[in-house]
Amino acid sequence: MSGPGELSIITRGLNLYYGAFQALSDISVGIRRGLITSMIGPSGCGKTTLLRCFNRVNERYDYVRTTGEIIVLGRNIYDPDVSLIELRKSVGMVFQRPNPLPVSVYENVVFGLRIHSDRSALKRADLDVAVEKALTEVGLWKDLRDRLKVKATTLQLEQQQKLCIARLLPLKPEVILMDEPCSALDVEGTRGIEELMFELKGRYTIVIVTHNMAQARRASDESIFMLMGKLVEHAPTEDLFLNPKNPKTLEYIEGRYG
């Protein structure tokens, strides 16, 4: 990749196997800091698998075996002294269906802080500040400031999804991974999340997996097209959609398969 801006995530020759099945083959990619990078491709192409590699949460799902290198924020995350706890604090994830915990809005936001600090180190005032800051950052503070005690699972889906993003922020992440964050939302909700992504861009590196090509096109700076576990094309979004280099990319974005 050319141009300014350093890379937040680099993979080199990454292969991933679920048992005998190879889900990713020889992925080498660099994801630029502070931008929104979208990953597109048909179902089963490995985009979600690749996303889950970036904070090694894959290992919680199945028997996975990986070879190759993944360098996140300058550190090979397979180094033996890498703590998964610290890695996942810096690299958070948002899911298809909003998954707020069945506790209050407030407790959802401070959940990460509670997990990662001693009980005695947490002052109520600090938590209050963290909640206000995180909710303000995702644009929920005005709507929810008087409803912090409300159970998070009763919010609208769009608010739930924003809350899931807010839940990551008190841990001061640098990368936010989004796995089809709008697929459960309606048009308004999708717009809300996309606008939030633009707000967050710059401060955070955002990687978004999406089924929706139109979304990739309007909401991302760079796009990665994947097929059958391989990376086919990685380019600035404009270029990928207007002048795809690879005929397979062209066929996909024209909707010939998918």
Partner: peptide, 27 residues
Amino acid sequence: VPRAFREACWNVGATRWQTIRAVVLPN
């Protein structure tokens, strides 16, 4: 207990035990 709750915990860096204590057992 829905897996989504566990995922929510894992991705803020909770260990399995923290996940169990904070989310799985209460639910």
